[in-house]
């Protein structure tokens, strides 16, 4: 193990380490803690210039205000309306493409694969105008469906990379044996491969959920009104209205950040498995 395990060091070093950990964490999360505290500070404190002192009271009412006086509830609903179909659509498509690319050897396999991989790296801006026009012509401009459709297509690239590598690493004997038995190809997919892909599906659903929830650019480009905007774009426009009302901005930020954070803490193992794919040989 590297570095040398701390248990093997002198007691002084060990104590130092145990003190350094929380201090480092505190410094690391400084901006976050500041915002979390501000979100609980009554507006009167901010008005009187008490930004960092002890709050005169704990104002959970800021959160109530955010929900009652802004469309943030609608924004969050919109985020779910974009995110959930995207996760499902992407997984369906990429399980299929991953299966096709991971199991079969055909001409152009590697070209198609790297087409998907390369698509991942493309800057969004080169897609912006055509995708916006396309969405508009489909009658889906300023709808959650139109936004989800684009996300499905784009995320399929990333997920294909993941799925294909995962499937290619499955033992080929399983599939060969099934073929000898005369099992139809689609049944191999449905009854043999798909059940084995559960960990990959779990990892990708958490990752895609987080990516899409946090997307801001496409939300800005493809949606414009409070009834369709996801929470990232919504928060940005609320920020324009809540100027100098940092207690509300903070509370809104925390609310917007919560779903992916919960997802992360609940599904940490899958999340990190997905993120670090390829980080080890």
């Amino acid at each position: 193990m590297f570095p040398r395990p701390i248990e093997k060091s002198s007691p002084a070093v060990r104590t130092l380490y145990k003190v350094a950990l929380p201090v480092a964490l505190l410094l690391w999360l400084f901006p976050l803690l500041g915002v979390a505290l501000t979100s609980l500070r009554p507006a009167s404190d901010l008005a009187m210039g008490n930004y960092f002192g002890i709050p005169s009271s704990i104002a959970f009412s800021n959160y109530a205000d955010v929900f009652n006086n802004s469309p943030i509830g609608q924004y969050i609903l919109n985020s779910f309306k974009v995110t959930i179909p995207t996760v499902i659509g992407t997984l369906v498509l990429s399980c299929m493409t991953g299966f096709a690319l991971g199991i079969y050897r055909f001409r152009g396999n590697i070209i198609v694969f790297f087409l998907f991989v390369a698509g991942n790296f493309v800057p969004f801006q080169i897609l912006m105008v055509p995708v916006r026009d396309l969405t508009y012509n489909l009658g889906l401009y300023n709808t959650t469906g139109g936004l989800a459709l684009f996300h499905i297509a784009f995320q399929t690239g990333f997920c294909t990379l993941f799925m294909r590598n995962f499937i290619a690493a499955l033992p080929r004997e399983l599939i060969e044996a099934a073929r000898v038995e005369g099992v139809a190809e689609w049944r191999i997919f449905w009854y043999i491969v798909l059940p084995l892909m559960r960990p990959a599906i779990a990892a990708l659903s958490v990752l895609v959920f987080t990516f899409i929830w946090n997307d801001f650019f496409w939300a800005t480009v493809l949606t414009t009104s409070a009834s369709t905007q996801p929470v990232t774009a919504g928060l940005s426009s609320l920020n324009g209205q809540w100027i100098a009302a940092w207690h509300l901005v903070s509370a809104g930020s925390i609310v917007a950040a919560l779903p992916p954070v919960l997802m992360f803490f609940l599904m940490q193992k899958h999340f990190i498995a997905g993120l670090t794919l390829g980080a080890v040989k």
Binding site: Y136, Y141, N142, T223, T224, S225, A226
Partner: peptide, 17 residues
């Protein structure tokens, strides 16, 4: 009724379509 900022973009679309 449209969102004030979004309207500036939307008008360019709805005028033609």
């Amino acid at each position: 009724n449209f969102d004030h900022e979004g309207y500036k973009t939307a008008i360019r679309n709805f005028l033609t379509t």
